[in-house]
Amino acid sequence: MEQFFSTFSARAIWTPELILILALISAVYFLMITKWRHRLPDAEPVPVKRRVYFHLGLLGVYIGFGGPLYVLGHMMLSMHMTAMAVVYLIAPPLLILGMPSWFFEGLRPFKLLRGMFVAVGFPLIGLLSFNAAFSVYHLPGVFDYLLTNEGLHNVYQLGMFALALLMWWHIIPRVKTRFHLSELKQIGYMVASGVLFTPACALIIFAGEPLYATYTDPAVWSQAIAYCLPPGADIPYSLLSGSQSLTFLSPTNDQQFGGALMKIVQELVYGIAIGVSFRAWMKRDREETPKVVHQEYEMYEPNAQ
């Protein structure tokens, strides 16, 4: 680990630019829920737990798009998959849970935003687009091309993050829209998403040989790792293999471990979400049952003479 910190600069390891951006988002969030809150109709105080959810989501974004794990992800696929699991499966629901519902209600008057959501808000679009983008990303040729082109990689990652938010919105809606899903449909939605998520993980787990030149070909790896180094710095080939290597698994085992880790995290997160939806379904059913019984009793009650 000492070799890691001595090879890469503090800027590459800790990504201060991303910290600054997330700090600004946090500041705007606090202004929105405090000083600016009274500008929106029916705005209520935001509970502490929602504030915690939101900032845990920001932390997830940092872990996925910056910090030491991002650099390690250029040397080990398992680290890259861990970062992706955090930023696409854990951070989006936390960010959505952290936002007050009155914020989204306040966006309704903006016709452009409303029109954009009508265009892309259909649940099937969120379900298919995120899982398709995730699967395409892990095709060997696409993966290696993106990892060696920093600009395109960043654009693709941000686009996939936006699609992840769209997918999770239908699972954790903060306000009712024309596309609102019942709890039963939310459960089916998550099951379908888990099925669509599986092929990419299966490809990585059962390939039997390394799929990505980024982690096996020094020439390709040098292009990918160069974006984590100061301009003009020598490529630390010793970190890829040898006694100073930071990898503790063979490329094949690392690949299998990364795919399995991603699938396990997805199953755990979706399992929790399904449990929450099922609980909400049961709660609503219990609340509605007495009303139905009361209405039926009134229907068949004899008229008083």
Results as ranks from 00 to 15, higher is better:
residue 10 A to W: 04
residue 22 L to P: 02
residue 28 V to W: 08
residue 34 T to D: 02
residue 34 T to H: 07
residue 35 K to W: 10
residue 40 L to D: 12
residue 48 V to E: 11
residue 49 K to V: 13
residue 54 F to H: 03
residue 55 H to M: 06
residue 56 L to K: 08
residue 57 G to D: 00
residue 65 F to Y: 15
residue 68 P to L: 04
residue 68 P to V: 06
residue 74 H to E: 08
residue 74 H to R: 14
residue 76 M to L: 01
residue 76 M to P: 01
residue 84 M to I: 05
residue 85 A to I: 03
residue 87 V to C: 09
residue 98 G to N: 08
residue 98 G to T: 10
residue 101 S to Y: 11
residue 103 F to T: 09
residue 104 F to S: 05
residue 120 V to H: 00
residue 124 L to K: 00
residue 124 L to A: 05
residue 125 I to W: 00
residue 127 L to R: 02
residue 128 L to Y: 03
residue 130 F to N: 03
residue 130 F to M: 09
residue 133 A to W: 10
residue 142 V to F: 11
residue 144 D to W: 07
residue 144 D to Y: 02
residue 147 L to T: 05
residue 147 L to D: 08
residue 168 W to K: 02
residue 170 H to R: 11
residue 172 I to W: 08
residue 182 S to W: 12
residue 183 E to T: 14
residue 184 L to I: 15
residue 194 G to P: 09
residue 199 P to A: 08
residue 206 F to V: 11
residue 211 L to M: 10
residue 212 Y to Q: 03
residue 213 A to E: 08
residue 213 A to M: 12
residue 219 A to D: 12
residue 223 Q to N: 07
residue 227 Y to A: 15
residue 229 L to I: 06
residue 230 P to W: 03
residue 234 D to I: 11
residue 235 I to A: 03
residue 235 I to D: 06
residue 235 I to F: 04
residue 237 Y to K: 02
residue 245 S to H: 02
residue 248 F to P: 01
residue 256 Q to A: 10
residue 258 G to R: 06
residue 259 G to E: 08
residue 261 L to D: 04
residue 263 K to I: 07
residue 263 K to A: 07
residue 267 E to W: 06
residue 269 V to S: 05
residue 271 G to N: 07
residue 273 A to S: 10
residue 276 V to M: 07
residue 281 W to T: 05
residue 292 V to Q: 10
residue 292 V to A: 14
residue 300 Y to C: 05
residue 302 P to K: 12
residue 302 P to H: 11
